[in-house]
């Protein structure tokens, strides 16, 4: 699988040089960044750590970055790592007690869901700074485009590609480490894992922080690319579910599964948007939802999982 990933990476790296249409470039960047978030989510999701709150981490990272730029004048090159760090810190704050106190399964999913909602509502409530539900735009700096991380499609393509590559690389490294086996054991049976000397909380924390960090990176870069931030699209249930669905549709047990899923859901949303335009508002989410349910019922291991089984 890593060989496939390297080939995909190489192809994607030269694509912008071909002078592809902007529309294609736009979809490509959006897909890679969502793919990063989905890959991040699946890193922990595949071990039975199901979070419905990854929107919280994205929201924290994106808004921290944008606020530092707009209000303090700090470049996103610093703001982005700062935001991601803050998101990881928030993940630690949430996850540590959860894991120590054995908040698992449905309870963990719903606690993380609450965390996502807290961030979303906080962003809305702090409307004096964040613009509330109307959203905010990072200040444009045409003279200092590089410092402001405000590139054209081509430049951002490579940034997105590198970010996505980091996610895939992290997955690959974890698969080759003892952590993957430890986490599988934990996913099977926590008590048994602890009994054979696995440091359960520590392993779970590590994968959760990595997962939150990667998801936050993808989401914050997406906001920076679009130069628009909105609490509904960066925090809360909506985003969290979107990430989970992407990972699930592609197959969360496979390295490239979440990426395939992100491509699939992005393409689906795009097709539905183009097909219906503003004519039948609601048809798009309706069909999207139906397809998701069908996917879960008939392809529980996702697209990649289905292909793997057929081979």
């Amino acid at each position: 699988m890593i060989r496939v990933a390297v080939v995909v990476f190489a192809i994607l790296a030269v694509l912008p040089l071909l002078g592809l249409p902007d529309y294609f470039m736009h979809l490509g960047i959006a897909t890679m960044l969502i793919a990063l978030s989905c890959t991040g989510w699946a890193l922990m999701g595949r071990f039975g750590l199901v979070s419905f709150g990854h929107g919280a981490f994205i929201g924290i990272a994106a808004y921290t970055m944008a606020l530092l730029w707009n209000d303090v004048g700090l470049s996103p090159w610093i703001g982005l790592p700062a935001g991601v760090s803050l998101a990881v810190a928030a993940a630690a704050l949430l996850a540590y007690p959860c894991f120590r106190l054995r908040v698992v399964g449905h309870y963990f999913a719903l606690v993380t869901l609450a965390a996502g909602e807290i961030v979303r509502i906080l962003i809305v409530a702090l409307r004096d700074y964040t613009g509330g539900s109307l959203g905010m735009t990072p200040r444009l700096a045409p003279d200092h485009a590089v410092a402001a991380m405000q590139f054209g499609k081509q430049g951002f393509w490579w940034i997105a590609l590198i970010a996505w590559g980091i996610g895939i690389f992290a997955w690959w490294r974890i698969d080759r480490s003892m952590s993957a086996r430890a986490l599988s054991a934990i996913g099977e049976d926590e008590d048994a894992a602890a009994a054979i000397g696995i440091r359960v909380t520590r392993e779970k924390m590590a994968i959760t922080l990595l997962s939150a960090g990667l998801a936050a990176l993808g989401g914050a870069l997406g906001a920076q690319y679009r130069l628009y931030l909105n609490p509904e699209t960066l925090a809360g249930i909506g985003v969290s579910l979107q990430i989970v669905f992407g990972a699930l549709a592609g197959g969360m047990y496979s390295m490239l599964g979440p990426t395939v899923g992100a491509a699939f859901t992005t393409a689906l949303e795009e097709v539905l948007r183009v097909a219906f335009g503003t004519a039948f508002i609601g048809a798009a989410p309706l069909i999207y939802g139906i397809l998701l349910v069908l996917f879960i019922q008939f392809l529980p291991r996702g697209i990649v999982g289905w292909f793997d089984r057929r081979r």
Binding site: G48, V50, G105, H106, A109, L241, V244, F245, L248, F280, I281, G282, A283, A284, P285, L286, I287, Y288, G289, I290, L292, V293, I296, Q297, P300
Partner: peptide, 30 residues
Amino acid sequence: VVRPLLNSPPITQVLATGGVIFVLQGSAML
């Protein structure tokens, strides 16, 4: 939605009902 998934892991059942969120919102909008 739920019955075909009764023997699946709980997470897939929850997610399937999550997909229904979009179905119902979309239907209402339509």
